[in-house]
Every structure is written in structure tokens, then in C-alpha cells.
């Protein structure tokens, strides 16, 4: 009898694990609404975008300046891995690859999470990996976010979009309400203005 119960328990545990792997919703941390914006921006449109070099999930290091003269860059800062809005924002950009490509733009996705967390989080966003680099601003904690003025007191970044042209100049800034997702249409419209 005891053996049967243990067997049932093992099967149930396996079932729950497989549901979690298939339906990412269960892995998402539920949180209360936060203050829409809780930091003081340090850059403005027309400024040279502060350069940075950050480790990517792929294992390489990525510098903003390496795109100078080659690509328009969309910096997409999101607050935290495994949280509701962040978890679908990048899959949306993944689907819209052609819209960014048409505008000669690359996305750099950035959070203050560490690389293993970002790896676990982004690999379950779709069947293939994301087409754009995902960078970790984990250590020194949030140093890049702090340079742009979007590090919140709780150590996460704002939900922010910065568009930088091929000359390295900031052309669009949206420090978005952290509880809401920015409209893809606005980002594409801003990119179209660069061309």
C-alpha cells in the first residue's frame, strides 16, 4: 500500500513538472503593481549614448560601441527575469524580427539578473533562442543602468527603451510605466524616423 502511494506521488510530481515546463505561466512570479517610475534619468535625446561592455547569455561580451557605423541599436531594459510583463515583452520582439531588420536595427536586451538566470529564462521563451543578444548588468550591480539613470532603489531597472543611431547618438527615450508594456508601434515609428 505504502509503495503504491509513493508511486502515485512520484507520478504526480512528474506530471506537475511537465506542466510547468510546457506552460511557462506557472513559473512566472506574481507581483503587485510598482511605482511607475522610480529613478532619475541621466541622459537626454541628442546625447552620445554612454558606452558599456556587458556579458551576454551566449558567452561573449558585447559593447554598444561595436555597432557604431553599422546598426541602429534598441536598448530594451526590462526589470527582472521570470516576472509577468518582462516574460512576454521579448518574445514579442522575437516575432517582430523583420520589423527591426527592415530598419537596420539590432536589439540589446538588458536586465540586472545574472547569466544563469537569464539563460534559464530566455531559453523557455520559444523553440529557438532569441535573435538578439541578452546582456547581464549584474556585476557591478546595475552599473550600466545607473549610468543611464534607470536603476531603481530595489536594484532592478526601469522598463526602458533607448534608440541609438549609427553615430551613437540617443534619438528616442521611453522610460515606460514599469507595470505596462511599451507599444511596439511606437518603437518601430521611432526607428523609421532614423532612416
Amino acid at each position: 500500500m505504502l509503495k503504491k502511494i509513493l508511486y502515485t506521488l512520484a507520478v504526480l510530481l512528474l506530471t506537475c513538472t511537465s506542466v510547468q515546463a510546457k506552460v511557462a505561466k506557472e513559473q512566472i512570479y506574481k507581483q503587485q503593481n510598482r511605482r511607475p517610475v522610480d529613478s532619475v534619468l541621466k541622459v537626454k535625446i541628442g546625447d552620445k549614448a554612454p558606452d558599456f561592455t556587458l556579458p551576454a547569455v551566449s558567452g561573449e561580451k558585447v559593447s554598444l560601441s561595436s555597432y557604431r557605423g553599422k546598426k541602429n541599436v534598441v536598448l530594451s531594459f526590462v526589470p527582472a527575469a521570470f516576472t509577468p510583463i518582462c516574460s512576454d515583452q521579448w518574445p514579442g520582439y522575437n516575432l517582430a524580427h523583420e520589423l527591426f531588420k527592415m530598419n537596420d536595427a539590432v536589439i540589446l536586451g538588458i536586465t540586472t539578473d545574472n547569466i544563469p538566470s537569464l539563460h534559464a529564462w530566455t531559453t523557455q521563451m520559444g523553440e529557438g533562442s532569441l535573435w538578439f543578444p541578452v546582456l547581464s548588468d549584474f556585476f557591478p550591480h546595475g552599473a550600466t543602468a545607473m549610468e543611464y539613470g534607470i536603476l531603481r532603489p530595489e536594484g532592478i531597472t526601469e522598463r526602458a527603451i533607448f534608440i541609438i543611431d549609427k553615430k551613437g547618438t540617443l534619438r528616442y527615450i521611453d522610460i515606460h510605466d514599469i507595470n505596462k508594456r511599451p507599444d511596439l508601434g511606437e518603437i518601430i515609428k521611432a526607428l523609421e524616423k532614423l532612416n
Binding site: M1, L2, I5, L6, T8, L9, L12, L13, T15, C16, V19, V23, K25, E26
Partner: peptide
Amino acid sequence: MRKTIFILLILLLAVSSNSY
């Protein structure tokens, strides 16, 4: 022991249905 396992089973079922 059996009681503990039954409680675990019930908790597991409750957790798996919570998401809906």
C-alpha cells in the same frame, strides 16, 4: 507516515489547480 503522504498529495493537487 501515510498521513504525511496523503497531506502531501492533497497539497500537490491544490498547487496544480491554483493556476486556473
